[in-house]
């Protein structure tokens, strides 16, 4: 019983730590609170079932968990669209619809958090991170060369790294120096 209790506590620790961040990604993709909550539950069930396949030396736990969440979200909107329309939707059409909804829903606006990105980089992050587009799909959707897609993704990731990595460590450094001066 002690092992089961500890097991429960630990999976719930993961939930407490990551549920809001994962739910933010899921809700932006599925656009429905009820479905998003079902997907979040399924995500944690799958995380729990597959933790023994996860290799910490290769990728962070959040990268691994968010990939599960995103794949389940895309599956969910695909099946939702199938149920709604009664026929098979193409993934491209699904994503087109999803982007249209994204653009009019101000609750899901990323602008306040990623102002450091320019329009092109922001668009790329929204497409690939919050809509699950591959490079090939992004190239077709935006009508820009594949090489440009790759370079924009890399620039956007580097800009984000600069924003979060540098700013957080700088804050830490300033805090440390302030303590030293006192």
């Amino acid at each position: 019983m002690a092992v089961e209790k500890k097991l429960e506590e630990e999976i719930m620790t993961l939930y407490d730590k990551y549920n809001n961040a994962l739910f933010g990604i899921i809700l932006r993709i599925v656009k429905d609170q009820h479905i998003a909550e079902e997907v979040l539950q399924d995500t944690f069930v799958k995380i729990w079932q597959n933790l023994d396949h996860y290799q910490s030396s290769k990728a962070s736990i959040f990268t691994w968990m968010s990939k599960i969440a995103r794949n389940l979200s895309i599956n969910a909107i695909q099946s939702k669209a199938v149920k709604k329309a009664g026929f098979t939707y193409s993934m491209d059409q699904l994503k087109e619809d999803n982007i249209a909804e994204n653009n009019i829903n101000e609750n899901f606006d990323l602008r306040t958090h990623i102002n450091i990105l320019n329009h092109d980089q922001k668009q790329i992050i929204e497409l690939v991170y919050f809509n699950g587009f591959t490079h090939q799909e992004t190239h077709q959707h935006l009508g820009i060369p594949l090489g440009t897609v790759k370079s924009r993704i890399k620039l956007a990731l580097n800009s984000l790294s600069h924003l979060f990595f540098v700013s957080d460590s700088t804050k830490f450094l300033i805090f440390f120096l302030l303590i030293q001066w006192q």
Binding site: N20, G24, Q33, F62, T63, H113, S161, F164, F165
Partner: peptide, 18 residues
Amino acid sequence: KWEFSLEELARKNAIAPS
């Protein structure tokens, strides 16, 4: 670095479920 940045991006855009 990229993983950390995307995790931070997700945290900053987090939404609480029920």
